[in-house]
């Protein structure tokens, strides 16, 4: 069975079991550090998060919704998204149009350069 532990890749090898063992050790060390905690911490203090002096919003209000995640990334690629969204029309005529267009293109490509 040891043969199945040696996964040869094109340029080297990958050993998932050793990786898992290392990860378990790292997690155990992390757990030990977390378990020790901060001895200076007093119960009842440091419960509320600091929110620039304002009252922190409730967890329900603080939960970021899917539509707001990666706003910066999407805004930075605004022009790209404007284009790719414009071709996703949801219209079946366009679906067939793209299919026929690619078919025509590949017909030309294969007729010109398809042979060995």
């Amino acid at each position: 069975m040891t043969g199945f532990l040696d996964f040869s890749t094109p340029s080297g090898f990958w050993d998932p079991l050793r990786w898992i063992i290392v990860m378990i050790i790292a997690l155990l060390i992390s757990y030990y550090i977390w378990k020790r905690g901060n001895p200076k911490h007093k119960k009842g203090e440091q419960i509320k998060p600091f929110f620039s002096g304002y009252d922190a919003p409730s967890p329900e209000d603080a939960h970021i919704r899917a539509g707001n995640i990666y706003w910066g990334f999407i805004t930075a690629l605004k022009r790209y998204y404007a284009f790719v969204k414009s071709i996703h029309t949801g219209n079946i005529n366009d679906y067939i149009g793209w299919y026929v267009g690619i078919m025509a293109l590949m017909l030309i490509v294969f007729l010109l350069w398809g042979g060995a």
């Binding site: 793209w98 299919y99 690619i102 590949m106 017909l107 294969f110 007729l111 398809g114 042979g115």
Partner: peptide, 28 residues
């Protein structure tokens, strides 16, 4: 591999590429 074969090849390969969902024939 005549001209007809090349046409048949384009018809089959492009259709199967569409059926496996490759862009830009992935809309379905």
């Amino acid at each position: 591999f005549t001209t007809l074969d090349k046409i048949a090849m384009a018809l089959i390969l492009v259709t199967l590429a569409m059926k496996c969902g490759s862009i830009p024939m992935h809309f379905w």
